[in-house]
Deep mutational scan, measured.
Amino acid sequence: HDTTVHINGLRIEVHGASEEILKWIEEAARRGVEAEEIKRWVEEALK
């Protein structure tokens, strides 16, 4: 999927993410993980 995830006011563009990654992002956000940190993880995961 190409999608934009909104976390604590930060937009994260996610290209080619699976449902699993999207669920993981939402879970991390709920746990209060910094949005910048999530963004870094997602970029690494999608390389």
Rank of each mutant, 00 (worst) to 15 (best):
T4A: 15
V42K: 00
I7S: 03
A17Q: 04
R30S: 15
I25Q: 01
E27K: 03
R11T: 15
V33E: 08
E26D: 08
S18H: 07
N8S: 09
E19W: 13
W24E: 01
E19K: 12
A29H: 11
I7T: 03
K39E: 05
S18T: 15
G32N: 03
S18F: 07
R11W: 14
E34R: 11
K23E: 10
I7W: 04
H15F: 14
H6I: 15
E44S: 09
V14C: 03
R30D: 12
N8H: 08
T3W: 11
N8A: 10
D2Q: 15
W41D: 00
R31G: 08
E34F: 07
E34C: 09
G9T: 04
H6F: 11
E27C: 04
V42D: 00
V5I: 15
N8Q: 10
E13C: 10
A35E: 08
A35G: 06
I25N: 00
H15A: 14
E20C: 06
E44R: 07
L46C: 08
E34H: 13
A28D: 01
K47M: 12
A35K: 05
R30T: 11
N8L: 05
K23L: 11
R40A: 12
K39S: 08
H15G: 14
E37S: 07
K39C: 07
I38G: 00
W24G: 01
W41S: 02
E43W: 06
I38F: 01
L10S: 06
H6L: 14
K39A: 10
E19P: 15
E36G: 08
H15Q: 13
A29P: 01
I38C: 01
I7F: 06
E26F: 13
I38S: 00
V42I: 10
A29Q: 13
V42E: 00
I12L: 09
S18A: 06
R11G: 10
K23D: 07
I38Q: 00
V5L: 14
G32K: 02
E20N: 09
W24F: 05
H6E: 15
E36A: 12
I7N: 03
H15I: 13
I21N: 00
E26W: 13
R31C: 11
R31L: 14
L22Q: 04
E20A: 13
E13F: 06
E27P: 00
K47H: 10
R30Q: 15
E37D: 12
L46R: 03
G9R: 00
V5K: 04
H6Y: 12
